[in-house]
């Protein structure tokens, strides 16, 4: 008997050891959160892999900073670049330079485990250098509005804040869907979006702003141009004769040059007083705040739309001043 039980005990020993190890491993795994490496595909189709959720994140663009906060990972940000002014907490972050010229050494000094970069803003060589030095880099690049919630979720996965990120992403999708349903199917409003006055710069259909215009049931009059931010001349605007002119300017102030269009009374947008302003941070930044800009733009364009439907009832009035202007300019030519 005794001999027998001893044999049993001996055979049990390795099994117990195995169970114990498994338990210990499980406990460790739970206590560190996630043990499996996290792997996501960034906006430029590169794979970003982290052994564990990022604890020290550096943002290399103002828009990336906003995205990180939206994804619930704001408290893991250790540094950002200048003009990271939203949300309020971002203003207190230490800086590593500006998005187009940052100090590589300072980035290294913060010993980040994740860098969120901006593909079209950062110098590609500098980003490659960071990767060479063994730092994980996520490249953001928003070409479509629908991409934004995906980016949010991916950043959330990398930072271990998926729950918050998912909520924010859902909220974004819902709001966008609501705007689309309300406005995009209504009568088209022809829009000229003015980025700057001198030189006169607009946007083509590849630009995110053009997509926002479409969501609001607008039609970008320069959608077909080649360049993403083409330089144009005043004549092109006169020829396109948009229903509304929308501009952003430099800051929260409505730019004075928006009123310069009043010198062209033949423009329909001027006749109808449809010169609109949207704060640039609400529409030019590729962040969830683009919804603020979208909501405002949709309201503005809806106002234009109402005026259009009114004037359609008496089309002869619309044609008259146009002809007059043409006539006058011919007279001028003859005189000179």
């Amino acid at each position: 008997m005794q001999f027998f039980s001893q044999r049993q005990r001996l055979s049990f020993a390795p099994f117990a050891l195995f169970i114990a190890t498994l338990l210990l491993w499980l406990v460790l795994a739970v206590s560190t959160g996630y043990a499996a490496p996290i792997s996501v595909i960034d906006d430029r189709q590169n794979t970003v892999t982290l052994p564990q959720p990022a604890q020290r994140i550096i943002s290399l663009a103002p828009s990336s900073t906003e995205l990180i906060y939206s994804a619930g990972a704001g408290d893991k940000l250790v540094a950002a670049v200048s003009f990271s002014n939203y949300p309020e907490a971002a203003k207190k972050l230490p800086l590593v330079g500006s998005y187009n010229q940052f100090d590589l050494e300072r980035v290294l000094a913060y010993q980040p485990d994740l860098v969120i970069s901006w593909y079209s803003g950062n110098q590609p060589e500098a980003i490659e250098q960071l990767e060479k030095l063994g730092i994980a880099v996520y490249r953001t690049e928003t070409r479509y509005l629908e991409q934004l919630p995906e980016t949010l979720i991916k950043i959330g996965q990398l930072a271990g804040t998926e729950t918050v990120a998912q909520q924010e992403a859902d909220r974004f999708k819902q709001t966008l869907q609501h705007l689309k349903q309300t406005y995009s199917t209504q009568a088209k409003v022809r829009v000229f979006y003015q980025v700057w006055n001198q030189p006169l710069i607009t946007i083509n259909q590849e630009n995110l702003i053009s997509q926002v215009i479409e969501v609001c049931g607008g039609q970008n009059v320069f959608a077909e141009l080649e360049s993403i931010a083409p330089k144009i001349d005043v004549e092109a605007v006169l020829k396109a004769n948009p229903d509304a002119i929308v501009a952003s300017g430099m800051d929260e102030q409505r730019p004075e040059w928006l009123n310069d269009w009043k010198a062209w009374p033949s423009l329909k947008a001027v006749q109808d007083q449809q010169l609109h302003f949207i704060p640039p941070d609400h529409i030019q930044r590729q962040t969830v705040r683009v919804l603020l800009g979208a909501e405002r733009l949709c309201q503005q364009l809806d106002q234009t739309r109402q005026l259009n439907t009114q004037s359609q009832r008496k089309p002869e009035q619309q044609a008259k001043p146009k002809q007059q202007a043409k006539h006058e300019s011919h007279k001028d030519d003859a005189l000179s």
Binding site: Y119, S120, A126, E141, I228, A229
Partner: peptide
């Protein structure tokens, strides 16, 4: 394109960061 400009300006200004 917009995102190419950053890299292009480098060649015109001169810079040792890369």
């Amino acid at each position: 394109q917009d995102h190419q400009l950053t890299g292009m300006v480098f060649w015109l200004m001169g810079d040792l960061s890369r």
